[in-house]
């Protein structure tokens, strides 16, 4: 190999490397563009005026007023929109469009790959403390249509920005009941009541109950302190998301979830056994709150 050949070889290699680097850079830019670009769901006035559109509207109506439109599947006083603000459209409030593109998905909760319909069924069983509508029920078809419509144009399989509730850093101090109670009194009682009972008007809840018989049960995601803290920090008080500190969000989530609520539907007849099987995470099920064993109704 003479000098000229060596130079040619080197430049080919260098060109190749540069091209590779450029390609990698491009790939990264694409990934970042996907990662950073916020997804905006379509506006409601673009729901089509046809059979599909009718199902989308019905799904939206169920989502906003679950009591009125899917009441037979609900066993408490809640509506989907209580935890998924702005009719399931709002980023960082577990928006439907971000969930849609991640299903089917494996879930540790039931140790299997779930389709979106099964995910909805889980919501009814736990968060709504009710019974799951069948996969071919008109209610579930409508909810599926609504989620599908909200996510049209969103890239499939991607963790869209705003999915779920934004994870929180661990609190500086261990979450505390007393401090949580104080945060609750100052920021939450106005709407949710000093016993977490919510506010009723015209036979329904206008502000949701946070514990007690009409709230989510011990199997719902929101009974986990980390999940509730993340939701609260991003979204509460309504219209003032981000106003509580990280510590305040953890404390108040701990306080809310240190109260009695409907039993975990997977109850094994014994709090300790149920705790061992299903509550190996950040929650207070099976703990003592004062003299009361949480999970064992008074």
């Amino acid at each position: 190999m003479n000098m000229k050949q060596i130079l040619i070889c080197t430049s080919i290699i260098m060109y190749g490397q540069a091209a590779l680097a450029q390609k990698a850079e491009h790939a990264q830019a694409v990934t970042e563009a996907i990662k950073i670009k916020p997804y905006l769901p379509p506006t409601e006035d673009t729901i089509p005026d046809n059979e599909f559109g009718a199902m989308v509207r019905f799904g939206r109506d169920i989502f906003i007023d679950t009591q009125a439109h899917a009441g037979k599947y609900v066993g408490n006083g809640l509506n989907c929109v209580n935890c998924h603000l702005d009719a399931g459209r709002l980023a960082n409030s577990a928006p439907l469009w971000a969930a849609w593109v991640k299903y089917p998905a494996y879930r540790g909760k039931n140790k299997m790959v779930n389709i979106m319909q099964e995910r909805f069924q889980g919501c009814f069983k736990y968060s709504m403390n009710g019974k799951a509508p069948a996969t071919d029920s008109k209610e579930l078809k409508a909810l599926t249509s609504y989620a599908f419509w909200l996510a049209q144009g969103a890239p499939t399989g991607v963790d869209l920005p705003g999915r779920g509730y934004p994870g929180l850093a661990k609190p500086e101090k261990k979450p505390d009941f007393k401090r949580g109670k104080q945060v609750f009194a100052e920021n939450c009682v106005l709407c949710h009541g000093d016993k977490g009972e919510g506010t009723r008007q015209n036979a329904g809840y206008v502000f949701p109950p946070l514990w007690g018989k009409d709230s989510f049960n011990w199997g719902a995601g929101m009974h986990r302190i980390n999940t509730a803290a993340a939701f609260i920090r991003a979204n509460m008080p309504l219209g003032k998301g981000g106003s509580l500190s990280n510590q305040q969000a953890w404390d108040v989530a701990y306080y809310v979830n240190s109260h009695e609520r409907p039993q975990d539907p997977r109850f094994k007849g014994d709090v300790a056994a149920t705790k061992a099987a299903y509550h190996q995470h950040q929650c207070r099920y099976g703990d003592k709150s004062g003299n009361h064993l949480l999970g064992k109704k008074p």
Partner: peptide, 9 residues
């Protein structure tokens, strides 16, 4: 306004 809700609006 309680909790500054209207000022936020």
């Amino acid at each position: 306004d309680p909790v500054g809700l209207m000022q936020a609006v």
